[in-house]
């Protein structure tokens, strides 16, 4: 096969790409008559955000985290408990902020230990957060959970309807993804990548491993916190069982199946887990088995994730190599 031209990411193309992505995210609010599909679209945005956070931790900083569900829980409970007292617009960033701080704290052991130890610490953190949410009934509502979580309003704009709330979710998700994109393409992002590829070399080049790893962990956790904050008003209620360990495992699978360390990876992973089961309704009960099987096959044959398929699709349609979104 002859050599393929690589698509260059020029500012113009990037802007067009981002507008398209925004379109894809927002579109369901205008085009889908089915409330159920709209709900799935909202979930996809929220999952994308959480998975993108994990992608920072996993794909760019080379750490493992099994606590994304717990951070989502922290964000969700912050919004659920404070949006009536303060305001959604205060509670949402606050939830992200709390997740950020706790992410920093949880990130400290990650400087010292690797692999299974870090998996264990984050897993333990998830279980402990779950137990606290479950048992501190006076604050969190315990096993009953929190009900009637209102959707936000911004002056004359009301985000109560499913459609308008979906637009809000899509906007927030896109905004954060854009920030990430910008960050990853700055000097900073290159440092992240340096860590993953070769810790020793990165250190010798003067990258402070300690700070970058910590920041990756904290920012990734904050993403989950914000995603959780968006989830709470979407469901209208929350209880601790939502934020269980299995949910964290799902995000890990999502990122790996989608393609870790690639910017598009989490988005693809989230779509595979939420939308695909609806397309293949015939195999509905089998879906998770197929998904798990596919995950294993992808790990073995496509170590870079399902994003490889996207690259191939892009190349065969346009005749050019898919653009490299991050350096």
């Amino acid at each position: 096969m002859n050599t393929v031209k690589a698509s260059k990411v020029t500012p113009l193309r990037a802007s067009i790409g981002w507008l398209c992505l925004l379109g894809i995210f927002v579109l369901p609010a205008f085009s889908v008559s089915s409330q159920y599909i709209l709900y799935l679209a909202s979930l996809t945005c929220i999952y994308t955000l959480t998975a993108a956070g994990l992608n920072l931790i996993l794909g760019y900083a080379g750490q493992i985290s099994l606590a994304q569900a717990a951070f989502m829980g922290i964000g969700a409970y912050t919004v659920a408990l404070l949006s009536t007292k303060l305001s959604f617009w205060v509670a949402l960033p606050l939830g992200g902020g709390i997740a950020f701080v706790l992410g920093l704290v949880l990130g400290f052991p990650s400087l010292k230990v690797k692999h299974h130890y870090l998996a264990m610490i984050t897993l333990g953190f998830n279980i402990i957060v779950y137990l606290i949410l479950m048992n501190e009934q006076e604050i969190t509502g315990g096993s009953y959970g929190v009900f009637n979580i209102p959707r936000p309003k911004a002056g004359p704009i009301d985000f109560t309807s499913n459609e308008s709330y979906h637009i809000l979710i899509a906007l927030v998700t896109c905004f954060i993804m854009l920030l990430t994109y910008w960050t990853l393409n700055s000097q900073w992002g290159r440092a992240f990548k340096g860590i993953r590829e070769n810790e020793l070399r990165a250190e010798m080049l003067g990258v402070s491993l300690r700070n970058y790893k910590l920041l990756a962990f904290a920012i990734g956790s904050a993403f989950a916190g914000i995603a959780g904050g968006l989830l709470a008003p979407l469901l209208g209620y929350i209880d601790p069982t939502i934020f269980n360990l299995g949910f964290s495992f799902q995000f890990l699978l999502m990122v790996i199946v989608g393609g870790s360390g690639r910017f598009e990876g989490p988005f693809i992973g989230a779509i595979i887990i939420t939308i695909f089961p609806e397309i293949f309704r015939v195999a509905e009960r089998l879906y998770f088995v197929i998904f798990a099987l596919a995950a294993m096959l992808i790990l073995i044959f496509m170590p870079k994730g399902a994003v490889t398929l996207w690259d191939w699709l892009f190349q065969t349609i346009t005749g050019r190599e898919a653009p490299k979104l991050t350096k």
């Binding site: 299974h116 790996i256 088995v289 798990a292 099987l293 995950a295 790990l299």
Partner: peptide, 12 residues
């Protein structure tokens, strides 16, 4: 990758 593969295996 092995960690994730075993998680998937468990689900399966």
């Amino acid at each position: 990758p092995l960690v994730v593969a075993t998680i998937a295996l468990g689900f399966m």
